[in-house]
Design a protein around this nucleic acid. Structure first.
Lengths: 160, 160
DNA sequence: AAACAATAATTGCGTTTGCAAATGACAGTC
DNA sequence: GACTGTCATTTGCAAACGCAATTATTGTTT
């Protein structure tokens, strides 16, 4: 018997949303939203990124990210400069201010994660992370299959 | 050395968002959004729920859910009725139409999940689910601790 | 039983989001 | 070197979202 509450996407989403809520509130006092933190932490890990790459890395939709970067630039957290040799792409980087801020937030993120998983054997968490990373990769390969199913249905019942 | 891309919330969120995207597209042809599916599947599992309980079950913010239920009622998928004995609460249920629809979608959800995790030993997935459920529970108990940290910071730097 | 507090849901309002269309820039073709 | 196509980003627009305030009902106090 199927139960939503035992399905993998449900269990995943629930923990993700909840952790996001808690961490958002934790960093709100720094004037930073969760997407902003993700962008800064991503740039701290790999700087000088293009918009599309940053979108892939953070799983933020590209138009949303474009506007977010605009706001963060306005706040002096990142730079966004058109490349000289390829002016259709843009290079995004942390400013010193953005770097200082994210380096203040990262210890908070580390502590948050520690507290969240401290009741579990670290081996479990490590395995969990590995599986999550692998599942993410495998999703790319099943995407065409999903799209197929959509088309199959459309063909069977047009405009249904 | 900290890396965002190795942090638990990041890995979690990424898989959650991606699976959500794929499944959303899969069911879009039925005129149903992902939040709508979650509500219907939740009601299919446990019917006759109050708004607040349904919000907790689906991790949808309560005002968002209130409006969503309004739209779903308009579409004839659910009923929302004030209780006679306690008129400040409401009871939400599937209509026959809503039930029929969700029973059409559930097999799709089951198949989707199967495909998504088919490359992994089912024991791993089972363990993963267990850990996710436990972590979710444990988040409730750390919430006060997180809030404490916020207050501590506020006290140290008012309006900072 | 009047006043006050607590609970449940809804609504106002500004912000964020995502799709689709538009823009801008480069690459290949004839 | 104009013409067409492709790639990367931005923008228009309507829908979805979340917080805070509001409404409606029930529970408690004296």
């Amino acid at each position: 018997m199927y139960r939503l509450t035992n399905s993998f996407p449900y269990l995943l989403n629930r923990v993700g949303v909840r952790m996001g809520e808690l961490f958002s509130r934790r960093i709100a006092g720094y004037g930073v939203t969760l997407p902003m933190y993700r962008v800064m932490a991503a740039l701290w890990e790999i700087g000088d990124q293009r918009l599309g790459d940053l979108a892939a890395m953070t799983t933020i939709e590209i138009s949303t990210l474009s506007r977010l970067i605009g706001e963060m630039k306005r706040r002096g957290l990142v730079t966004r400069t058109r490349l000289k040799d390829n002016a259709r792409t843009v290079a995004i980087n942390l400013t010193p201010k953005g770097r200082a801020l994210v380096e203040e937030l990262i210890p908070i993120a580390i502590h948050f994660e520690e507290v969240a998983v401290r009741d579990f054997p670290s081996k479990n968490i490590l395995d969990l992370k590995t599986v999550l990373a692998e599942i993410y990769e495998s999703l790319n390969s099943i995407e065409p299959e999903i799209e197929e199913a959509n088309k199959a249905r459309k063909a069977a019942r047009p405009k249904g």
